[in-house]
Design a protein around this nucleic acid. Structure first.
Lengths: 314, 314
DNA sequence: TCGCGACAGGGTAGCGCTATCCCAGCATGA
DNA sequence: TCATGCTGGGATAGCGCTACCCTGTCGCGA
């Protein structure tokens, strides 16, 4: 029992004894059995992180930051990929909660009622990622996707454009919030035209961006600016424009979202929103750490903001 | 005990009883405790996968495929990111092996002696990914990176080019094997010039590709073809060429590696090697499944091959 | 001197499963 | 008839930790 306490650094053990126990453990190459630990304490040292995709580097950056904060504290990060599916998320939750994680980080607020109940009933501390809410007692770190979408659209408006399109894929909740920001910005100046929205449920990719851009121009030859919900789509559009001899930004302004790899050297360079996903990961993990230790956190909703990066494409 | 057997589907239990147990479990919302299971059986239902990076989508595709095979069999996939570091890999192995995984999938063969010994001593079935060896008793699924590098270079030679450069970043073992393929192909025709290799240890990215391409042209204005070790670098080079008015493929042929997202619609479209990483994941997971069940596998080294995809850039 | 609390250290009893042995019942063949 | 083996089902004893409680010692104030 004393050895257990010494190694875990809990309770009061003579520092000299702690040292001796450490040495003995090292000499014996002793490594605690996490299964036995979890069984005895009804709590594992793992933290579950649920993200909707690994193909979008936004979540890779986020996971990286989470790992950087939690690994040194001795937590195991379990990555769950929901593939943007409520059913898969529910399945993952069922599986992972059986492991009695110490904490959870989950993306967004939209999920099945069963998932919601499982999170609630588990009593496991949980921090929500990417989006914000002011519901009391809900811990979250994110940014207003709506405000960011609005900012992009307003920027396009300040450039004098009025026929501004919105092209999206994947159609996850955050994309739809950006769409809402786009709508509001245009409604404010009386320029909103629902016909200028193109929403594709397909998986986002550079190739899809090129294809959607081509379709879009055929349907709306008069468009003078397009806001793509993610940079990969916008990058594809820039390439397609190049191929078809459409001058960007002269003929059409192009804006993206997320500032992904390559957006700073595309041709032309892409105007976009830089989302601080590493900071989201870091702050969410730090907040979770406080919750897991039973502490109260100062601010339960942290807005990390966003940055409009104006480059040549708009 | 009978209930345990019924739910796990092992041993001989009357089918009618199995059904009754299932129903009772469902009614009670019973979920087995994985910690207790692991403690009692000295084996967890998790499989560890070690990859060197999540930023390279090659590994995302691979993980996806692995998950698709193992999840339905009831295995938990634990993702470990070694960040191309031997020390981190060693740390991860130490941590993960304590969980007594049922199996492991690890990338490549180059690792610290301590890591090698841990894998050996653990007795956990292990399949190596991405590369090939004909060492007996070693299970691996991959492709000859050397042959692939050679194929790209030979293709550039068939296009009549002789001053062929090689530009690489990250410099992981697989990149160096591609470099070796490049060298051999050129040596075969007496065109090898070590001065035409540019090896950067920096993290691979589109932006880096653009920067390296610029540097490279300044140092080697006479180069007539460049083989980039990864598509992101090559995509960056294409963009930089566009910016500087360098005509691809007329002035310089550009070839990449991996056929990543966007390479099929870059300007010009990128000639590259398509690596079947999803197949690697699938076959490695399937092989591991056999090993975990104690079965022998037919072929211990599976070569999934590669495909030269000839597009406009070369 | 004594009572009391603080403190370091340790004993005991599980946590929820499964490996292993055991047993009753039945069919089989010599 | 009985030894034999097979089959389905169950009893028992841990797996390696930690929560909880207990003991002995020491310092301090009354």
């Amino acid at each position: 029992m004393t050895a257990s306490r010494a190694l875990r650094g809990v309770g009061r053990v003579d520092p000299a004894l702690v040292e001796r126990v450490r040495e003995a453990a090292a000499a014996l190459q002793y490594v605690p059995d996490p299964a036995a630990r979890a069984l005895a304490s009804a709590r594992s040292s793992s933290v579950v992180v649920l993200v909707p995709s690994l193909a979008n580097t936004v979540f890779i950056d986020l996971l990286e930051a989470v790992h950087e904060v939690l690994a040194p504290e001795g937590y195991q990060v379990l990555i769950g990929n929901t593939h943007y599916s409520r059913d898969e998320e529910e399945q993952l939750l069922r599986n992972y909660l059986a492991h009695r994680p110490s904490g959870m980080l989950v993306t967004g607020f939209e999920r099945s009622e069963a998932s919601r109940r499982m999170i609630e009933a588990s009593g496991v501390p949980c921090v929500y990622l990417m989006e914000l809410t002011n519901a009391p007692g809900v811990h979250c770190v994110g940014l207003s996707q709506l405000a960011a979408g609005q900012a992009v659209t307003r920027h396009l408006l300040t450039r004098g454009r009025r026929r501004i399109g919105f092209v999206a894929a994947q159609l996850d909740p955050r994309t739809m919030q950006r769409a809402e920001g786009y709508r509001r910005a245009l409604q404010e100046v009386g320029c909103y035209d629902p016909g200028l929205e193109l929403l594709s449920p397909a998986r986002s990719s550079v190739g899809l961006g090129a294809a959607l851009f081509k379709d879009y121009l055929e349907r709306h030859p008069d468009v003078d600016a397009i806001f793509f919900c993610n940079d990969d789509l916008a990058q594809g559009a820039l390439l397609e424009a190049l191929r078809r001899g459409i001058r960007i930004p002269e003929q059409v302004l192009i804006a993206g979202f997320n500032d992904l790899d390559g957006s700073d050297c595309s041709f032309p360079r892409l105007t976009t929103i830089r989302t601080p996903r590493a900071e989201i990961g870091r702050r969410a993990a730090t907040m979770l750490l406080q919750l897991m230790r039973g502490g109260r956190v100062g601010q339960s909703a942290v807005d990390v903001g966003f940055e409009l990066v104006v480059r040549e494409s708009a």
